[in-house]
């Protein structure tokens, strides 16, 4: 009988799998051991894998430096940032220590930094941030943004196996919102985008939770007769430009949706690439939709209007479709 597996179950199972298969793997983070993590992503792992899961002090800088040292010594640490927002305290170690180590010394730095990210109602300015853009900007990092239960599982497993620092952006809203019947046995490799829905009229490029909003918007638009293709980037760095370009070649129209702030970023990067390499494929100016250029608000009324919603995605799509 099929049991329901949530996105966060998948993350827990991927870590259990990695701990079971690879003796070099350990988990280090705040409240991750006996307590099982603020979101329970490491529930019971300390019990099942004694001596492999460790509580850290509230010291994000030292947590990441520690992981880099352990990686130099041949281990494969998984670091849980309690919230992506707090990773800025460890930012220096991520972008200057971890991300430069291989390039400077030839010694790889296989660490996985898990960032529970993205907005949930009531989270407010310091428990809601989307930081994939900022990490993708730095050379030396891989930045993953799974949008499905299956990808949460397979991409986290792959992240641990990758010989470079991986910023694993797991969306807090998806944690208990998404469900699957079983864990996948095979998956697309990291670096390949996925066509989440086929359509001929418009390409919506999205990643993480915004894939779900894009798919809902596509459903809404279907009732109006529009067939929208949705590309799930899966990883924002590397960015699978070829899959995006091939989709735009089919539809001639592009909308790129991201939950992070509007200045620069993943959506701007996608549009820049399509505009410079695929200008001739476009029938209309490419558009993008992001959060508002303010900190993430607390109150549900404000929060819901801050990030792109299904309605906003559908409205932006209509504008392009009617142009």
């Amino acid at each position: 009988m099929a049991t329901e597996i949530t996105y966060i179950d998948a993350i827990r199972e991927a870590q259990a799998h990695a701990l079971r298969d690879d003796p070099r793997v350990f988990i280090y983070g705040q409240d991750v051991a006996a307590f099982g993590g603020a979101f329970k992503a490491t529930k019971n792992l300390a019990k099942e894998f004694p001596g492999r899961v460790f509580d850290s002090p509230i010291s994000e800088d030292a947590m990441v430096g520690f992981a880099v040292g352990a990686a130099i010594e041949g281990l494969r640490p998984i670091i849980e940032m309690q919230f992506a927002d707090f990773s800025t305290v460890g930012f220096n170690q991520i972008v200057n220590q971890a991300a430069t180590l291989f390039w400077r010394t030839g010694v790889p730095c296989p660490i996985t930094v898990r960032l529970p990210f993205g907005g949930t109602s009531g989270g407010g300015p310091f428990h809601s941030q989307s930081l994939e853009t900022i990490y993708a900007h730095y050379p030396g990092l891989i930045v993953l943004t799974p949008a499905t239960v299956e990808d949460a599982y397979s991409m986290l497993l792959e992240a641990v196996a990758i010989d470079d620092p991986v910023i694993f952006c797991e969306h807090k809203f998806l944690y208990r919102h998404l469900k699957a019947e079983k864990l996948p046995t095979e998956a697309l490799p990291v670096g390949k985008a996925r066509i989440a829905r086929v359509g001929r009229d418009l390409t919506i490029v999205a990643y993480s939770a915004m894939v779900q909003d894009a798919l809902e918007a596509a459903n809404e638009l279907l009732t109006e007769g529009w067939e929208v293709e949705v590309v799930d980037l899966r990883s924002v760095k590397p960015l699978d430009t070829d899959t995006v370009m091939a989709s735009v070649a089919r539809t001639g129209k592009l909308l790129c949706v991201g939950e992070s702030w509007p200045w620069g970023g993943v959506t701007a990067e996608v549009i820049a690439r399509v505009a410079s390499e695929g200008y001739g494929l476009l029938d209309a100016p490419p558009q993008r939709l992001n959060a508002k250029d303010t900190p993430v608000p607390y109150h549900p009324n404000l929060w819901a209007a801050h990030r792109p919603t299904v309605r906003a995605v559908a409205a932006a799509a209509r504008k392009i479709l009617r142009s």
Partner: peptide
């Protein structure tokens, strides 16, 4: 780094936790 001889980054104090991580890994 593979010989336990760590190359500093310019950000001061940043190497200490890296040493901690190497020591932890050896104990591990």
């Amino acid at each position: 780094p593979r010989d336990g001889y760590l190359p500093m980054i310019s950000h001061l104090g940043a190497m200490i936790s890296v040493v901690n991580g190497v020591l932890f890994a050896r104990r591990f």
